[in-house]
């Protein structure tokens, strides 16, 4: 079979765009579905509040849908990016697949994550319709922060698409896919975790609206810490894209970058979700008892730090693979 550079370009476009839109759209759809299901449940209990509920649900779904818009933009770019003759072929195809992996996996996490605060806001509005404005604004802050991993992923995808890849011949094909995988997979967990955190904060606020400022502050600190694995993943993908100019062109060089990407990328999923579970309950607890806020914050930070340790092991192993072995 004869595989021309043209064929590689098409393979890259189709695989990359389907990864970006398939995975990115899937996440946002799950998140929107969670919001819709909760809104229906609340409406069934309180049919008189239907207009408030509908507004909250639509706002939550609109803001929660933006990761899928990032995925759509990058997916269309992957499909229609003009190719110049010098880069055409396997390397170009793998930058497209790498960009698709980054934005697809990254937007999947944030898309599902944005569903948690939207769902909690719907059930909160039904319980406490007078506080719906404050609740909706907390929901939107939480969703915006839960989208930061997907924004990191979009940035890496755009870098992959528009900056020249390291000119190490065929090895840069491996670098491009690995950089996309490490960013995308490591953004998945933090996106989910930040969303779970925002869900807890919205739930806490809907039950105890008077301690709103403390709840929002705890939520923002918790989400910032949830994002750490995504930052590790972004760091490793930048290292791959910008410093590996002397990667050996062999199966060893290829497995080096892939192994580092799997370590830091997949390794970031668990800690991201785990940190989210910690700060979810911490947000609820500090909303309930704002007078013990310092104690809750301390416990949350200790718990998140320990939960984060495996992400740090994964980062260490990735750096050892890249630079020591």
């Amino acid at each position: 079979m004869d595989i021309t550079p043209e064929t590689w370009n098409y393979i890259g476009r189709y695989v990359g765009a389907s990864l970006a839109l398939g995975l990115g759209g899937l996440g946002a759809a799950i998140g929107m579905g969670m919001a819709g299901a909760e809104a229906n449940r609340a409406m069934m209990k309180q049919p008189s509040k239907h207009s408030d509920l509908l507004r909250t649900m639509l706002l939550g779904q609109a803001v929660g849908g933006s990761p899928s818009i990032f995925a759509l933009v990058v997916g269309l770019l992957i499909l229609f990016l003009p190719v110049n003759e010098s880069t055409s072929g396997m390397v170009f195809a793998s930058t497209l697949i790498g960009a698709g992996l980054a934005v697809g996996l990254g937007c999947f996490g944030s898309g599902v994550g944005c569903g948690f605060p939207a769902a909690q806001a719907c059930s909160g509005v039904a319980r406490n319709p007078k506080k719906s404005t404050a609740l909706t604004s907390t929901m939107m802050i939480g969703q915006a922060l839960a989208q930061s991993p997907s924004i990191f992923a979009t940035i890496v995808a755009l870098i992959l698409l528009f900056l020249p890849t390291p000119s190490v011949g065929i090895a840069s094909a491996g670098i491009a896919i690995a950089a996309g995988l490490s960013m995308g997979a490591s953004a998945l967990g933090p996106g989910l975790g930040s969303g779970i955190t925002a869900g807890g904060a919205v739930k806490g606020q809907s039950d105890w609206p008077q301690s709103r400022s403390i709840t929002v502050r705890t939520m923002m600190i918790g989400q910032a810490i949830c994002d750490t694995p995504a930052i590790f993943g972004m760091l490793v993908s930048f290292i791959m894209l910008f410093t590996l100019q002397d990667l050996e062109v062999s199966i060893i060089g290829f497995s080096k970058v892939m192994a580092a990407a799997i370590a830091v990328g997949i390794g970031g999923i668990g800690p991201g979700i785990g940190c989210g579970i910690v700060s979810e309950t911490s947000c609820e607890a500090s909303a309930k008892k704002p007078e013990h806020d310092a104690l809750m914050l301390r416990t949350m930070l200790i718990g998140q730090a320990v939960s984060q340790s495996t992400a740090i092991y994964a980062l260490i192993i990735a750096l050892v693979i890249l630079f020591v072995v």
Binding site: I262, I266, G267, G276, I277, I302, G303, A314, I321
Partner: peptide, 24 residues
């Protein structure tokens, strides 16, 4: 190399989530 990457990557999922439950 691939073994080390897969081992650490997938091995980090469980403890991360599990510790989150404990602290939560």
């Amino acid at each position: 190399l691939m073994g080390a990457g897969i081992c650490m990557g997938f091995g980090a999922i469980g403890p991360g989530i599990g510790e989150g439950f404990a602290a939560g």
